[in-house]
């Protein structure tokens, strides 16, 4: 995990972990819990073209991502795995996001996009949970090309 310049200069104790949520963030939080309890695209894909597993040893989060890629496009994206609500909702949301997406576009997904997709403030220690989905996707796409 990269420490930003500001973090390196001074630990702002008030910003280490998320505080009270705004109304909009509350909605996102409910959404995350919903995705955690009722995951979308959580299944093993039999006819995948690419399968990749990543772990987050701190929490014990695990994601196995299955991609079916045809003509440079993500035809289907599914996953299996276990872990905290943030890691699991993050990958579930991401599989929805990348379905029917061009590979080049999928490769361009950035950390900021994941944070935006999740919509709640992610504390310093949970960054790895949130970004495990992106790491799995990035590595998968590296393997396919």
């Amino acid at each position: 995990m990269k420490i930003t310049k500001e973090q390196a200069q001074q630990i702002d104790r008030s910003k280490i972990s998320s505080s009270e949520l705004t109304e909009e963030q509350e909605m996102y939080k409910e959404n995350i819990i919903d995705y955690y309890k009722h995951p979308r695209n959580k299944e093993e894909l039999k006819d995948y073209t690419c399968k990749h597993r990543e772990l987050n040893p701190i929490c014990g989060d695990e994601i196995i991502l299955y991609l079916k890629i045809e003509k440079g496009k993500v035809k289907r994206a599914t996953y299996t795995g276990k872990g905290c609500a943030i890691s699991q909702a993050s990958i579930s949301l991401l599989t929805e996001k990348i379905t029917d997406m061009n590979i080049t576009e999928a490769k361009n997904i950035k950390r900021e996009d994941i944070f935006k997709m999740l919509g709640i403030p992610i504390s310093f220690v949970r960054t790895k949970c949130a970004l495990l989905s992106l790491k799995t996707l990035t590595k998968s796409l590296e393997e396919t090309t």
Partner: peptide, 13 residues
């Protein structure tokens, strides 16, 4: 039941 320890930890925080 139904809660991952890291989610518990964050809410307790």
């Amino acid at each position: 039941q139904g809660m991952h320890p890291h989610d518990v930890g964050e809410i307790l925080n």
